[in-house]
Design a protein around this nucleic acid. Structure first.
Lengths: 339, 339
DNA sequence: CTGAAAGCGCTTACAG
DNA sequence: CTGAAAGCGCTTACAG
């Protein structure tokens, strides 16, 4: 618990003034400080392990090099992959993060404001609307995976409709003509993903896919799949809107004696849980491009920080790439004949 | 981007001095400031939405009400449940967290020090040793789910051996006498959990359990289980040291035509991934008591903060409770006869 | 009862 | 080339 050295300590040890220390250590000693004294300052700083107090720095510069992250869990999960990507992008740019559960602990948003975070990033676990609290809108803010209904802040979101369509497309290209969907019951993401599947099916001249609405957990997916697989009209391929649902489907398929992909093909959309790719068989995935989104989000925020928040409000949409697994195969003859 | 009000602004509006504002707003106006002026100050503060600048406060008080969290991902996963529990405990006590990947971005530990976090919490994804960096040891620190080899900081860890024993006990009580273990290849946690199982087996007079070492992902668990289930000496019950392994085991059991729990019982230990309980069947779990650990850890840290870090170094161990699922049943007769 | 001053630890003009 | 001063926004003794 030893007190950390201050610029004054360094000055005393080096035998110069406090300002000289500042000049030298900030590389502005050029024609100002004599070579000898410069050395003395550097030596003293090293010896005392001196490093400027960031709190004092912030008070003066009015910048904290800290970004407030507003997030919240969804279906009991935090948007971990997205937050990780945001963290990596931010720390590469020299920012630290202060993360807060904006849903459960809204007062901490004020605490962040009091601490003078430079800007905010709102990071949603699933595509959603999020009304930015009044005082936050006075600070540069970008919305990740969510929208500000009042259009006060730029937003970066995955192309969910496109992702749904890509999932369907993957199956259609493999020869399937009878698609089913196991979808989350709630949320903008489920809705749009289903929409994408339907659009792709329609575009390919297929019948309207059967859609079963489920919760968002593994056992919800299991139950939905059982229902679907025990009906008289069993599709030859399924799209799941969430990884946990896909896992449930896999367990259900085993239980009713269907093999994936021989008897049933499967594609899942992704929320960064990193489950599906390690399942057996590994499930084909339409991935949310978290690192790309995070990088662009940070760029946008930093740009606002530089321009005092007077940047144009933008809405960026990101394509979700398909990552092949081992859960898609051509349909059995029965299905081909029916088509 | 409007400038936020300062105490001076409030003073001007209320027609008093800056110090009067401070006195009133901090409840020390008692016999010092006249009732009328007190009201004026309060009104002005409200009108201007005044709230003290926490940066300035920190510079003066030498406290930031912020805790630095040192963590790192393991097997590509962050210790999410534990971090969530830490976050909840900290925010309930009025602290904000700054989290940093101490493995990938060690320099950010220095950034945290520069920003004068009040203390540190080291939060490991899995039981591990972690050498606290030199400068950190000058600041109150507690180790969660890990140990400081030099014993410089208090640590709070789950009783991993006990957890392994509880898992085995659950199976033994259900009548099983031939246990197998699917264990992670690396890490203190795997090691101790296996040890616990072996100890319990020995205590009950059973044969030494077969232990298969695997990686830590779902497909690793799958492969290990296949190996185990296709050998000539198939155990009637398995303990998995990690949730993802248990999931792999479940998938493998289906594939080889074994039902859980009718043909094979299963208990898993837990790292807070929240998978096993939602599987079908739900897997019996020996849970790490994250909320309890986090609460105690924060208490310990706050205590050190109050006493200037001159508290005794303690090592606390926490019992892991069993959470029943639907993956354990008595062994089939074959096994009973063999016993 | 009230206001002016000192000081937390910095940096940046500004005199000498 | 160098040091003293001002100021970021607070609070807490300290004079009046």
């Amino acid at each position: 618990m030893t007190r950390r050295a201050t610029a004054q300590d360094v000055a005393d040890l080096a035998g110069v003034s406090r300002s000289a220390v500042s000049l030298v250590l900030n590389g502005r000693a050029d024609g100002n400080i004599s070579r000898v004294k410069q050395e003395a300052v550097r030596d003293a700083a090293l010896q005392l392990h001196y490093t400027p107090n960031a709190v004092a720095l912030s008070l003066r510069s009015k910048r904290t090099e800290t970004i407030g992250v507003l997030t919240w869990p969804d279906h009991r999960q935090m948007p971990l992959a997205l937050l990780g990507a945001v963290y990596r992008a931010a720390s590469s740019a020299g920012y630290l993060l202060m993360m807060v559960d904006a849903q459960e602990r809204p007062w901490q948003v004020d605490a962040l404001l009091d601490r003078r975070v430079d800007g905010f990033m709102v990071v949603a676990p699933e595509l959603a609307d999020f009304a930015v609290p009044e005082p936050v809108s006075n600070v540069p803010t970008v919305m990740v995976n969510c929208f500000d209904p009042s259009l006060g802040a730029s937003s970066l979101v995955p192309d969910e409709v496109g992702a749904g369509a890509s999932a369907a497309q993957r199956l259609i290209e493999s020869g399937h003509r009878e698609l089913g969907v196991v979808a989350g019951r709630e949320g903008l993401a489920s809705e749009r993903r289903v929409q994408g599947v339907e659009r792709a099916a329609q575009g390919a001249g297929l019948a309207r896919p059967v859609v079963v609405r489920a919760g968002h957990s593994i056992d919800d997916g299991y139950r939905a799949a059982r229902e679907l697989l025990e009906s008289d009209q069993v599709p030859s391929a399924l799209v799941c809107t969430h990884e946990r649902l896909a896992l449930g489907v896999l367990l259900a398929a085993s239980d009713v004696g269907l093999s994936v992909p021989e008897d049933l093909s499967l594609v899942s959309l992704d929320d960064g849980e990193n489950l599906a790719a390690r399942l057996v068989p590994s499930v084909d995935l339409v991935e949310r491009p978290d690192p790309v989104i995070a990088t662009h989000a940070l760029e946008l925020l930093v740009d606002q920080l530089r321009h005092g928040g007077h940047s144009a409000v933008r809405r960026l949409t990101f394509v979700c790439p398909v990552r092949r697994g081992a859960s898609v195969a051509p349909p059995r003859l029965r299905a081909l004949n029916a088509g």
